[in-house]
Design a binder for these strands. Structure first.
Lengths: 353, 353
DNA sequence: TTGTAGGCGTTATCAG
DNA sequence: CTGATAACGCCTACAA
């Protein structure tokens, strides 16, 4: 059996380079003022010995771990197993991860992905308190999720992925949900649809509520259009889905059952829209000729739908990158006051509407 | 601005409890022999002060981080962005994560998910050398991936998710791929299919190669069957897909174009099978009446297919849990000799075949 | 510009 | 059973 050789320490590098430990430390953290010749000698010693700094020792003194957590909180899912499955299946989280890691790389900071459901939450809190990470990117969509408040109470730097439900002095990044829904409504109207309906997300999730509000209130306001053409329905039919494919399918089925004349459908997520497409087509109705469908997210499933989905695009990667930047700023400047950054969504035209 | 109060240290707890630091340490690590009364007093002091051990200090002395990395390596994907998207979209990785975290929890060990493509590999190596983690669960399917060998050279405890391509003395967990493919072949034959074909995975991935081999060689051997009925085709048509939905669809299209009489199809992954289903149905052929389709993985998409997919099930969660247990054993007993654990797949009957 | 020395918060080895 | 005391590997005043 070959036992693993212990990592070389800074002292060994110093000895090889013929300098003191402090000097080695200086060139590693490229502190100013190290004679070029010495610096070079140290570099050589480092590569010669294969030295790599010990993170534990370093962060013990710097009080920095150089990593941040991406906490994905879904308190509602009781079943841990299906919960993780969902997280790793929903393209949204992949985009967030991609955006965040990209922004973090220049800062030389690692991202630790921490999925959590209700049962885990205290574990997560403990994890954060132990100093594993310097800050938290918190993805929490559920309005009643206690985690944002708890994390804030910890005093650890944090950035949320959407407006916190209560008044919490914390930074967040969000998309203008109402504007996105209005974009969808306007497009459906402009292509001539008059029997509109929507499949909204869970109403205890702000995004679910706001997309519904945005859709309805735009239709309520567009009196110009409603005068120019047939009157719009006073009451826009809506059925609630759960942001899953199956949920979207069931919701669409119910909707078409109750309102067979529907010719325009706004679905609050692409995943649900994919299910809705099936339901619509199962009833023998063509998309977009008979029923036009607009999704939300512009996730990768939008392209896999048939027909490809017209959808409201959130710049998720950019948003995640912005979250990361905000977080780094808070970490580097403790006491910096919280701020929010709101992104405007855009409409991506494909074939479904 | 409220500045965050520093975490209480062990000394403070000791002072509150009226004991020495060493004693506090003992109750925390519940070392043997601490007087019950003292232990209780310390516990009280801990909750009173809200003490949480500092992981950096601890792992500096124990040389343990109490976390392991789940490295997901896909050296082929040049585009980082789509790469992460794929990882977080493929249900397989979610299952792995679920299985591993579940097994790790009792050990009080955290899982750090580290996706990596070719460009990142040296970063990953550096990360591992820095001592962030005590060991590595390495998911690497590509035969030419240099990472397994590099990780092994590091001397850090590691467990692979499949047999390494070269002779590497390292533990791994795998499923009997050939047996799984044979299961599929046997089932298709038994339901009366005689014009069999397969959509195989990339041949530079062992799983891709072995599933193809297993399928073909079972058919070659089943002379009993081929005598009892019409002779089987000597050459079983096969087209290579890339383990994506779109790839499966394209492959199926090509297959049906070249061999319109196909009545039984083995697809080497559920994701590809979902695409294949579309292609088959687009040609106006019914599944399973005209063409029976068997997938591989029993991932969550198998249930979302229509019709729901008959598929070969890998017990992915259990396999990941086994990987985690093997890894913990290696971590706790350095020098333990490597071993492999092979799981037998099963056939899950649904409606597609 | 470089070296010396103290301390970061734990665990672990000893005595007592 | 409990308490000193010495590491663990690094950073950082401070001194030279």
């Amino acid at each position: 059996m070959i036992s693993r050789p212990r990592q070389p320490t800074m002292d060994q590098v110093a000895e090889v380079a013929g300098v003191s430990r402090a000097t080695v430390s200086r060139v590693i953290n490229n502190a100013a003022s190290v004679a070029p010749s010495i610096r070079e000698a140290v570099q050589r010693a480092i590569t010669a010995t294969g030295y790599v700094p010990n993170v534990a020792a370093r962060s013990l003194v710097t009080r920095r771990s150089n990593s941040v957590a991406l906490v994905i909180s879904e308190p509602d899912r009781p079943d841990d197993h299906s919960f993780l499955n969902r997280i790793f299946t929903d393209p949204y989280f992949g985009r967030v991860t991609a955006g965040a890691t990209g922004a973090l790389r220049p800062h030389d900071v690692h991202l630790v992905v921490v999925p959590t459901d209700a049962a885990d939450q205290h574990q997560v809190i403990r994890y954060l308190r132990q100093g594993h990470v310097d800050g938290v990117l918190l993805i929490s969509s559920n309005e009643h999720d206690p985690l944002p408040a708890q994390v804030h109470a910890l005093g650890i730097p944090a950035v949320l992925s959407s407006r916190p439900s209560g008044p919490l002095p914390v930074s967040y990044v969000d998309v203008d949900q109402r504007a996105g829904a209005a974009l969808a409504a306007a497009h459906l109207l402009s292509r001539g649809c008059r029997e509109l309906a929507t499949i909204n997300g869970p109403l205890d999730i702000p995004a679910g509520q706001e997309r519904l509000d945005g859709f309805r209130s735009y239709l309520g306001q567009s009196s110009a259009l409603s005068i120019a053409s047939n009157a719009l329905p006073r009451h826009v039919p809506a059925v609630t889905g759960d942001f899953t494919r199956a949920g979207g399918e069931a919701a669409a089925r119910a909707l078409l059952e109750a309102h067979p004349a529907i010719d325009g459908l706004f679905v609050a997520s692409d995943l649900m829209a994919e299910g809705a497409l099936r339901a619509v087509q199962d009833r023998g109705r063509r998309v977009p000729q008979d029923v036009a469908v607009v999704g939300f997210d512009d996730s990768s499933v939008a392209l896999e739908c048939r027909p490809p989905l017209t959808t409201v695009r959130q710049p998720v990667e950019e948003m995640a990158a912005e979250m990361a930047e905000l977080l780094m700023a808070h970490i580097d400047m403790p006491g910096r006051s919280p701020r929010s950054v709101i992104f405007q969504p855009t409409l991506v035209l494909r074939e479904s509407a």
